Amino acid sequence: MHKLRGVRSLTLWLVLICCAVPLRAAEIMVFAAASTGDALTEAAQVWEAETGNQVTLAPAGSSALARQIAAGAPVDIFLSANPEWMDWLDGQGMIDPETRRILMGNALVLIRTGPAWGKAVDITPDFDIAARLGPDARLAMALVEAVPAGIYGKAALEWLGQWDALAPRVAQADNVRAALALVALGEAPYGIVYATDAVAERRVHVAATFPEESHPPILYPGAVTRDAAEPEAAEAFLDWLAGPEGGAILQQHGFVLPSE
């Protein structure tokens, strides 16, 4: 009887000790397109407060991030500014395809420095961007052969029939936020960025919006990586971003949700 009581006491103490030890918080690394940095920073803070987990964000150009993942960078989530770089990683077996989903969309705009003047207009082939630049000024864009914002921008200019005239005058930046900074700092009078980038920077104003048909749809797919250290927490964060609370934050930063 005494031995049985001793076993029961030991079991009770073990239960109490286990209950007193908090569950380990997950720490996830998110590689995200530069244009999502502000929105994801706010979203991560809310999710961290709700779950106790931690999110580390690494915003940069989608192309650079995808290559780092392919090279073995320790990442739990990849959020790209276009499907092509996600497709590229998927083709190499570097993501979990069952976790992939489109989280949001965006628009492409022409921004300018200086005070706002009038309402932004829709760009048509008659909208001469080169004439607005003047004889010596440059047009800020993300890398036009690698970074999604630059790829979309080049496609839009080709659709307008203006790429050949503007190509020699493009100041290419490593990512869309770097292109935004060139305009905000007055290094270039005009630039092509996402609508959400213009919202995030008070020193620039939207001069015009590119038609949706002028470029491929701007979509942001997210997925858990194949070698994620915290796959369950990573998928939970993606689910939360795709839900009403995360979606509301994305909308506040100017993104368009897939259902819209």
Rank of each mutant, 00 (worst) to 15 (best):
A142F: 01
A200L: 03
E42N: 01
L250E: 07
R132I: 04
V224R: 10
I218Q: 02
A64S: 15
M141L: 14
S35L: 08
G254F: 05
N106Y: 02
V170H: 01
M94R: 15
E98L: 13
I17Q: 03
L23N: 09
A32E: 14
Y194C: 01
T225I: 10
A70W: 01
F255E: 08
V193D: 07
E232S: 12
I102Q: 10
A179C: 04
Q92A: 15
V7N: 14
N82H: 08
G91M: 12
L241G: 12
V199T: 05
E230C: 06
V55Y: 00
Y194R: 02
A73I: 11
V30T: 12
A242W: 06
H253Y: 12
Q45N: 07
G37S: 14
V21R: 12
R177H: 04
G118Q: 06
V75T: 15
A20G: 07
P148R: 01
Q162N: 13
S63H: 13
L40F: 10
E187L: 06
M86V: 03
V7L: 15
H253P: 11
P83V: 00
P83S: 02
H253E: 01
L110E: 03
T225G: 09
D136C: 00
A188F: 09
G72R: 10
V30I: 13
T196S: 12
A73H: 08
G114C: 03
E212C: 00
A229E: 14
T56F: 15
S62C: 04
G118V: 01
Q251V: 10
R5D: 09
G52P: 13
I151K: 10
P211V: 04
V46S: 04
E158Q: 15
V256R: 14
T11F: 09
L166G: 10
S35V: 14
V15G: 08
T11Q: 03
A179N: 08
N175H: 11
A49P: 11
T56I: 07
E260S: 12
